[in-house]
């Protein structure tokens, strides 16, 4: 079976998508049941948990299977350069959609800082609202929310120049090490690839550990929680989703590292590696922005 350069690879039937859909409805349906159980009685029924776990299990199985198929197709040379371009475009637009996801949360932060909190505190166009919250003082970081009986005040916010700064350095450095790994791959120096990629992964994991430590600190000592009003809410949604992305990025890097060990990738065919790198750089840029607007200013 010849694949001339102008014949595009159209895969045969595949059962992975439907498996993915089943995984998705089980995972989300189970999570929904779990959350509603907690809301209603605080106790989670066995059933809800098992549905969630099954869904998660199938999802992981699906991801392995699906990516496995793609990898073996790629290695057996079925993909023309045009297919490669499709993957590149696909990945770029996926990252763009992620950018928009974060954009929404940054927008929320901007709005609350510039509008809702000042208004509640008596400043600006709708400052009249202060009538309803006579004791409330607008400030950012907002330590004491308008109704301190519903939302616990924060004792102290996180000092940007300790853990967050270290984290910034870690992530920025990791972007460099990843680029070194990429260059090494292009030069065909596989042992260097392993070293640099491994280093990047270690930085990523270190970041996650520090971030976890920071969360524990926030909850246990600073009273900075999801329940501490809009400052806590925006803080955790931004850093939380970023952390989730670092986790995903680290898993991707780990897979890439394993594949390098298995001898995958060549100097001119390693799109999966590049896609992972793009993702990592994107996560890095988000962090820089986040470091500025969440921690510093």
């Amino acid at each position: 079976m010849e694949h001339s350069s102008n014949s595009y690879y159209v895969p045969d039937q595949s059962h992975w998508p439907i498996v993915g859909s089943i995984a998705m409805i089980l995972l989300l349906g189970g999570t929904g049941l779990t959350l509603n159980d907690i809301q209603a009685s605080g106790e989670v029924a066995q059933m809800s948990k098992y549905i969630t776990y099954t869904g998660a299990g199938i999802l992981i199985f699906m991801l392995f299977g699906w990516f496995g198929t793609v990898i073996s197709e790629s290695r057996s040379g079925k993909y023309s350069p045009q297919v490669d371009t499709s993957f590149r475009f696909g990945m770029s637009w996926f990252i763009f959609s992620e950018v928009m996801f974060f954009f929404a949360f940054f927008g929320v932060l901007y709005y609350t800082r510039s509008f809702s909190v000042p208004w509640l505190g008596g400043l600006g166009d709708k400052g009249l609202s202060h009538m309803l919250w006579p004791d409330f003082q607008a400030a950012w970081p907002l330590l004491t929310p308008p109704d301190a009986s519903l939302f616990t005040p924060i004792k102290e916010v996180i000092d940007p120049w300790h853990l967050p700064l270290i984290n910034t350095i870690l992530l920025v450095t990791s972007s460099f090490t990843l680029t070194f790994a990429h260059h090494a791959l292009i030069e065909g120096d596989r042992s260097k690839v392993k070293i640099w990629l491994g280093t990047t992964l270690l930085f990523g994991i270190a970041f996650l550990i520090l971030q976890g430590y920071e969360y524990v600190e926030a909850y246990q000592h600073l009273d900075l929680t999801l329940n501490s009003g809009i400052y806590g809410a925006t803080f955790f949604i931004l850093t939380g989703f970023h952390g989730l992305h670092v986790t995903i990025g680290s898993i991707i890097l780990l897979v890439m590292l394993i594949r390098v060990f298995k001898g995958h990738f060549t100097a001119d065919n390693h799109f999966a590696f590049e896609a992972g790198a793009w993702y990592w750089h994107f996560v890095d840029v988000v962090w820089l922005l986040l470091f500025m607007v969440v921690y510093v200013f």
Partner: peptide, 14 residues
């Protein structure tokens, strides 16, 4: 009297 204004919990509109 051509007034329609949303009433929003926690805020005041005029």
């Amino acid at each position: 009297i051509a007034i329609k204004k949303d009433t929003i919990p926690g805020f005041i509109n005029e």
